Amino acid sequence: MKTNNLKFLNLVLLGGKTEQKLYAACKAGFDQVEIWREDIQNNSKGLSSITKLAIQKGIGFTNLQVLRDFTGIPNGQYIQKRKELRQFIHIAQAIGCDAIQAPASTREDCLVDKIDDDLRWMASEAIRYKMKIMYEPMAWCSVDNTLPLAWERIKRLDQPNIGLVVDLFHVYALGGDALQLDDIPVDRIYEVQLCDIAEKPPKDKNSLINIARHERQLPGKGIIQIDCFIDKLKSIGYRGPIGIEVFNDKLKCLPPEEVAQQAWTALNNYWP
């Protein structure tokens, strides 16, 4: 049975120039892409060519990635981070994107007492431009490194335009499972990123980062019990974007159209 969820591909999976990657994702069948600021900055034809191609091909943008370590910034650095957020908003607006991905802090010197205030400011600034903030708990974050922890913060802050990124890698890397979704209202899940891993990763930070950024697998190529996760999403009535985020050095070396088609097939095996 066909669902109404928008299906996306994170462009990090594909090699080639930005326009090649957009074209490959569109040809494969994806409704949207997650695009990186670097995809835009490194595009030799400029920002307007990306916008024009997206309009021509009818492909949208799930989010603009990735605003790193915004929260809990030590005193004296927050001004630069706020400027960076505004730059992200400007780029997102230019390409017709309404969401920015901002993971939880990975800094060891993160000022935990400032996180709530920083997130409130981010939300208030973003909502002025009708932007959503996708807050992602990553396995190596110094705070909010699991879905339950990240949800507790978002629930407490009660900002209408901050929601969660659910990334299977980060859930399973720390021993979590689909039950972590039980207490999260479905409308506060802003997107779901599917992937797989060949084996259970060590929990030390460097190993997690290496596997996450270089050795993820397409869904169905590893050990994650993706079916359990999919069943849970369907049982709670998830209707948001669902897609593929796979960092894989070997796949990135293959022709982008070939890899995008593999990703499309893998996604539809789990979410027709």
Results as ranks from 00 to 15, higher is better:
residue 30 F to I: 11
residue 90 H to E: 12
residue 182 D to W: 00
residue 25 A to H: 02
residue 91 I to Q: 09
residue 78 Y to I: 11
residue 147 L to P: 00
residue 73 I to E: 09
residue 122 M to W: 04
residue 15 G to H: 05
residue 201 P to I: 03
residue 124 S to M: 07
residue 183 D to S: 10
residue 212 A to V: 00
residue 218 L to C: 03
residue 83 K to Q: 10
residue 154 I to A: 03
residue 233 L to G: 05
residue 106 T to F: 01
residue 70 F to D: 00
residue 186 V to S: 09
residue 71 T to Q: 13
residue 239 R to M: 09
residue 140 W to H: 05
residue 193 Q to Y: 07
residue 212 A to Q: 02
residue 203 K to G: 02
residue 50 I to G: 06
residue 81 K to I: 04
residue 219 P to Q: 07
residue 183 D to K: 14
residue 62 T to P: 00
residue 56 Q to M: 07
residue 182 D to Y: 06
residue 3 T to S: 15
residue 207 S to E: 15
residue 252 K to W: 09
residue 79 I to N: 11
residue 208 L to M: 12
residue 109 D to F: 11
residue 139 A to G: 02
residue 125 E to T: 14
residue 186 V to I: 14
residue 237 G to H: 09
residue 79 I to C: 00
residue 62 T to W: 06
residue 270 Y to S: 03
residue 31 D to A: 01
residue 193 Q to K: 07
residue 169 F to Q: 00
residue 121 W to G: 01
residue 237 G to D: 11
residue 174 L to V: 06
residue 24 A to Q: 10
residue 245 E to W: 01
residue 112 V to I: 15
residue 20 Q to N: 14
residue 152 E to C: 09
residue 99 A to G: 05
residue 66 V to D: 00
residue 86 R to V: 12
residue 91 I to E: 10
residue 112 V to C: 06
residue 236 I to V: 14
residue 33 V to P: 00
residue 24 A to P: 04
residue 9 L to P: 02
residue 113 D to E: 15
residue 70 F to H: 08
residue 265 T to S: 09
residue 55 I to T: 10
residue 204 D to M: 07
residue 152 E to V: 08
